[in-house]
Each structure stands twice: as C-alpha cells, then as structure tokens.
Design a protein around this nucleic acid. Sequence first.
DNA 1: GTGGTCTAGACCACG
DNA 2: GTGGTCTAGACCACC
Lengths: 128, 128, 128, 128
Amino acid sequence: MKADFEASKPIYVQIADQIFQRIVREEIKPGDKLPSVREMAIQLGVNPNTIQRSYTEMERMGVVETRRGQGTFVIEKESMVEELQQTMQKEIILQFVKSMEELGFSKKEMISGLEAFLNEGDQNGDPV
Amino acid sequence: MKADFEASKPIYVQIADQIFQRIVREEIKPGDKLPSVREMAIQLGVNPNTIQRSYTEMERMGVVETRRGQGTFVIEKESMVEELQQTMQKEIILQFVKSMEELGFSKKEMISGLEAFLNEGDQNGDPV
Amino acid sequence: MKADFEASKPIYVQIADQIFQRIVREEIKPGDKLPSVREMAIQLGVNPNTIQRSYTEMERMGVVETRRGQGTFVIEKESMVEELQQTMQKEIILQFVKSMEELGFSKKEMISGLEAFLNEGDQNGDPV
Amino acid sequence: MKADFEASKPIYVQIADQIFQRIVREEIKPGDKLPSVREMAIQLGVNPNTIQRSYTEMERMGVVETRRGQGTFVIEKESMVEELQQTMQKEIILQFVKSMEELGFSKKEMISGLEAFLNEGDQNGDPV
DNA sequence: GTGGTCTAGACCACG
DNA sequence: GTGGTCTAGACCACC
C-alpha cells in the first residue's frame, strides 16, 4: 500500500492562486500594482520571503512583472487574463476528474452527477 | 485581514477517505475485516493512535463496526456502499463547484467545461 | 547619465552555472546524483537555502530532477547536454558581442580580433 | 573545497571602464576635460571618493592627466585611444575565450560559433 | 520606499 | 538520510 498524505499546497502557491483568482474575477486588472511584498506580508500574516516567492512564481508564469524600485504589476497583455482562466480551470477540472475516477465513476456519471447537483441548487435559489 | 491557509486534512481523515475509496471501488466489500489497528499503523507508517481515530470516525459514520475481540468490519448493510459513494461524490462535486465559482464560472460553463475536457480525453484514448 | 553598476550574478545562479559547466564538460554525466543540498552547502561554504535555490532553478530549466527522499539527479535525456551547451554558448557570445559593440567594433572586427588573439595563443603553444 | 563567488568589479573600476568606453567610441576626445570629481559624483549618485579613485586609476593607466587647479583631462597623445581600445578589446576577448574554454569549446568552434551568431543577426536586420 | 538576495535555523513529508 | 517550505532578520541596488 501507499501512504501519501499530500500536504496542503505550499503557502506561497496558495497566495499566488488567490491573486490569480482575483485577476480572473477582474477584481485586480492588468496594469494594477500589487501591494508591496512587505505590506502583503503584514496583511496575510506571513513572512515577507513567502510573499516574495509568490510574486516570483507569478512573474515566472508571465502574469506579473516587477519594476525595480517601483513594485509588482499585473502585466497588461490583453490575452493574459483569459489564458490564466483557462489554465486554472483545467487544473480544477483535472482534480475533479481524478477524484471521481478514484471513486469508480465513469465520465457520463461525472457529468450527470454534476448536473444533478447544480439543479438541486437551482431549486434553493441563487441562479448563476 | 486574516488569512487561513488550510492545513492539509488531518491524517486520520485522509486515511478514512482512502478506505472509503476502496470500499466504493469494491476492493473492500461489506463484511470484510479491516487490518488491525496495529497492522494498519505499520503498513502506513503512522502512529496506531491515528489509525484508531480513523476507525472510530468510520464507525461514527456508520461504515464499519467493531466487534470486541474480533476486529473491525465493514458493515453488511446493502445500501451502505451506495450511500457512501453518494456522500463522497457530493463532497467532491461541492469542492469543484466552489472552485469554479471562485473563478467566476456560471453553472452552464462548469458543465460545458467539464464536457469539453472529457471529450478531449476521448481522442487520446482511455475511455472510462 | 545613468548609474547602473551591475551587481555580480546571484550566488545561486553562479553555482548553477558552475554545475552546468561541469555537465557540458561531461565531468558530471546524465543520471549522476548531485551532492545533497546540505553537503553541497558545506562544500561551497554557503547556506543550504542558497543551494536549494540553485537546484530548484536547475530543475526548472529541465537539467536536473529531484526524487523525493533520494536526492537530485542529472536527467538522462540524451539531448539535454547538447541543448545546455547551446544555451550557455549563446549566452557567452551574446555578452561578448554586446561588450564589443560598446567599444564600437563592427562584426567583422569582432571576428578578426578574435582570430588574431587565438593565433597569438597558437604561437605560445597550447593548441586546442 | 572553497568557493569564491566573484563579487562584482569595484564600482570605481566600473566607472573607469565606462569612461574608457566613451573615449574609445570618441564621445570623449583627447584633450577634453572630464567633469569635476564632485560633479561626476553627483551625476552618478556615488561618493566623491569613489570618483577620485576612478580618476587616479585612469591616470595611473596613462589615459588622463590632472592639471592642478584646472581639472582632469584626457591626454592628447595620438596613439592613446588606439592603445586603450586594444587593451579593452583584449580583456573582452580574454574573458570570452576563457568562458568558451570552460565549456570545452575548441578555438575553431569559438570562431565558427561567433560567426554563426553574427550571421543570424544579419537576417534580423541591424547590420553593424 | 521598492524588489532581490542571503543567512540561520527550524519543521515537514518521504524513503 | 533526502528535498521542500517557512520564519526571522539582514544587506543590497534601484527609484
């Protein structure tokens, strides 16, 4: 047997993901300046180095750029937000499919199960 | 602001989930005897107390029962496996929907996104 | 005017470059295990975190892979060494051309200057 | 083992090199007066002592001379510019050859590599 | 003030 | 033992 207790994602990844989410939801827009490393560290109650790593990772992924002595900015490339959304969506779906496969569900069952769940929600209100 | 970086689920929950998976996939069947706490602890390289908690949790959820002096058994109630599958499925779907909502996707987009992904997979083989 | 006193490359980059050199010169071969982070740190008189960063960077560039609990290994992909050599060669040439341009040399002068220098060396021995 | 991670060149050397470049490119000509130590220090945002060292170094190398109460001047000796260019060129070439040797390249490969690179550049425009 | 690098020392999961 | 992450605190170059 295999004992693989996947630790939660590293904090610096979680932070990057949070920011990605806010970009995809357009709460943060291309060209916007992110809080400074130190400020963000205080806001999140985390060590500045951890934020630094998040920012570096986001830059490596081409979502953000840093301007020396000025700060970290969301890049203005128009297509970026869409690409980011695609990437994150794929990640989520992948995780979902993997989990469902582990439970022995077929592809059809995944879709019908999801549809059933969403239709329940409709009856309780909040249509999206 | 205060950030909560979800620690990984407690190990005892992860272990229970693994066992649930195996029950749902029918690798472990109703009536089967689970390994002893001590043996399982060794297999997984974990403290026996942790396994004990997993077993207790599974018993609380009505999936297994312990018989004094004999061990821990998967209960034979016919509907159990199905219910368990439902419960776990719902958990996974919930997580999926929550993540997709965080990205700003509508319900329709969730389904179409999932379908698109699964159809891609078809072309590459491995039909489930 | 512009005051831009380029700091030396970060230590973790210098270390990665050193290792790349040794791979290109085939002193380290595909499949070889690198010293552990801690050991390398002691050897070089550097903080383990710095080595960690070097290893991470090398992995990101696809030159090295880490196996959990086992160590860091040069990847075995046959073409890797050649690609790495190309990459590093280009970097050096780029630096050279840039410096020569800053001195006002034309492309032809760069080549003839280099040839002249190398021929001098020939007369002093060490033919390569 | 002991590792020496070459710090960047001293700032005063970098400044001298910059001035040498400008002389070689004839942006500064023999006989020209250099800015005063104090003025140059302000322009470059550097301590005047650092500039002083740069000027002293350049004087030691016979490129400039200081005239008491008048300032620092580029010497008028006709051959100086050419010699300076030679010196700096040699330094750059030396650095290039050393780096290429570290990668295991032969002299022929150095030249052919450089030629290949420069010909690529031709196709993209900017002929020099 | 900004981001970038480095050290020191710690804890974790994995094999 | 391995690599991976995190904190704490420091120094640097750039604006």
